[in-house]
Design a protein around this nucleic acid. Structure first.
Length: 491
RNA sequence: GUCCCCAUCGUCUAGCCUGGUCCAGGACAUCACCCUUUCACGGUGAAGACAGGGGUUCAAAUCCCCUUGGGGACGCCA
């Protein structure tokens, strides 16, 4: 049996959204699950649209997600695309080069072969002519497409030309998609697609078939937007007598508006999730659950990468597209957050805190980090939770300090009592603080709730915070007293 | 205009292939209660879906057809 080889073949034209990375992840999971290879190939045939930095972004994102690349572009190739990328890795393998701009002669040779065998022809129609033709067809409400003008004209090699695939006027073709089953066409509405552009580079249709063949890709994972042009690829494989790979056309991820994910859905790009503070394993896990499920009898939602590799199968891929739901991602991120070590938590949290607070104090942070960690969904919620520790002029939700249960006079008494008790404390610890403050309700004949809220808002400014005594302890005795006194003046 | 794909709670989905065990199961979100110093966690419970119509069958979420709805493709983009 042939070794399983899958590939991820993005074009470096900008930021990939999570859907793109999900495609990569499924291809990778399948390779891993079958002891195969996962190849990264950069489809930069369209030089005009290539964006500097896009390849770096893709590779670093894959690495961040924990998707390891078996083979990919060499250091030199990477530098030729992203010239300013100093730390570009060396991914090379035995099927290189892995960037399409370096494979042009292979495409040209294949085009030549197709022409010689009568499956393709040269065409010197200008873009203007084609444009005119298309406009006329649209006006007549016909399917736009090339007329086939050059099919029999034997256009010379020497003039500026493109190469087109010669598709039969009538033909039926079909294949078995691993996620959708049998897909067939009676007469696919395709008109002699372009294989080679006038500048000598290949279009996706030619390049992907040539590359997938030469790189011995056994399973092609790609978005369902490729289904309509699959007949072109099938026709190419069949004409050339090459064995077709197994196709898995993945359903799309849609935005909340039900539309295909695009730049408009800014929040759906991986770098944004990264910046907002999601854990890679949470994103990977979440992404996996849209468009795939482990099947009957499995009701868990949380899977480690290793578990995923163990249970992944093509059978679980779903046909219908899905909408990504940030709320569920957040929940999942929270689950992972509660499980990671404090050290790893700090790797993410510290840079954020140092950036946010000029007076950031690591020793104070360490006192509350564990309790903060357990009540977080996303990292970017941290600053507002611990703001009270690192700012001088605290803003308080003072209007929430009173309620039906307590008036401002009551609050004043509570705060005065608190000051008195803290002053009399001979050791300032979480435990002693708790014992002391807990005496207040009885002494003033109040309920526990309003008393704690009063102290909480006085000290931290907010109604919802990490546990009160941990917070007060981290703040320190002097600051606590100062905050309580300040608050009395506000009443 | 032509072709292709898809269709179960608000969302992600199980079940569909191999009809009966499904007055449809889980998760997120929502609501209520419990736990509780707030928040979060956890626990319990509630509400919530087989797009519509025809067949086939003793029996259909499951098989077939049509309708509708959604998505996609029709480029010297991928």
């Amino acid at each position: 049996m042939k070794k399983v080889r899958t590939r991820f073949a993005p074009s470096p034209t900008g930021f990939q959204h999570i859907g793109g990375f999900r495609t990569a992840m499924f291809a990778w999971l399948f390779a891993k699950a079958n002891n195969g290879d996962f190849v990264l190939r950069i489809e930069n045939t369209d030089q005009a649209r290539s964006v500097n930095g896009a390849t770096k972004y893709i590779i670093e994102s894959l690495e961040w997600l924990g998707i390891d690349i078996s083979e990919g572009p060499s250091y030199e190739d990477l530098k030729s695309i992203d010239e300013y990328w100093e730390g570009a890795p060396e991914l090379n393998g035995n099927y290189g080069p892995y960037i399409q701009s370096e494979r042009l002669t292979k495409y040209q040779a294949m085009a030549e072969k197709l022409i010689n065998e009568g499956f393709a022809y040269r065409c010197d129609c200008t873009p203007e002519m084609l444009e005119k033709e298309r406009n006329e067809q649209m006006a007549r409400r016909e399917m736009p497409g090339y007329s086939g003008y050059c099919r029999t004209r034997n256009v010379s090699k020497d003039s500026s030309h493109i190469v087109r695939l010669k598709l039969p006027g009538q033909f039926s073709i079909s294949f078995d998609d691993s996620v959708r089953g049998h897909i067939s066409w009676e007469n696919p509405p395709l008109r002699d697609p372009i294989l080679l552009k006038s500048n000598g580079s290949a279009t996706y249709h030619l390049a992907s078939v040539v590359d997938d063949t030469e790189m011995e890709i056994t399973h092609v994972f790609r978005g369902e937007e490729w289904i309509p042009t699959t007949p072109i690829h099938l026709f190419l494989y069949d004409s050339l007598g090459i064995e077709r790979p197994i196709f898995s056309h993945l359903s799309h991820i849609l935005g909340v508006d039900g539309k295909k994910l695009s730049k408009r859905h800014g929040a759906a790009s991986l770098n944004v999730f990264r910046e907002e503070g999601y854990l890679p394993e949470a994103i990977l896990n979440y992404i996996t659950r849209i468009g795939w499920s482990p099947g009957e009898g499995e009701e868990r939602e949380i899977f480690s990468i290793d578990e995923l590799v163990k249970i992944f199968s093509l059978k679980g891929l779903s046909k219908s597209s899905g909408v990504y739901d940030v709320a569920k991602l957040q929940w999942m991120n929270g689950v992972y957050l509660r499980e990671i070590s404090l050290a790893r938590f700090n790797e993410f949290a510290l840079p954020l805190l140092e950036k946010e607070f000029v007076n950031f104090d690591r020793s104070k942070w360490d006192l509350v980090a564990p309790v903060v960690k357990d009540r977080l969904k996303v990292f970017n919620e941290i600053p507002q939770m611990v703001e009270f520790l690192f700012v001088e002029n605290l803003k308080r939700d003072i209007d929430q300090i009173t309620s039906k249960k307590i008036d401002s006079e009551g609050v004043r008494k509570v705060l005065e009592k608190a000051i008195e008790k803290i002053k009399n404390l001979n050791d300032f610890s979480i435990k002693s603080l708790e014992l002391a403050i807990k005496e207040i309700p009885d002494e003033l004949d109040l309920k526990m709730g309003p008393v704690f809220i009063a102290v909480r808002i006085a000290v931290t400014g907010k109604k919802a915070t990490p546990p009160l005594f941990d917070s007060m302890f981290a703040l320190g005795k002097d600051k606590c007293l100062k905050r309580l006194e300040e608050t009395i003046k506000l009443l």
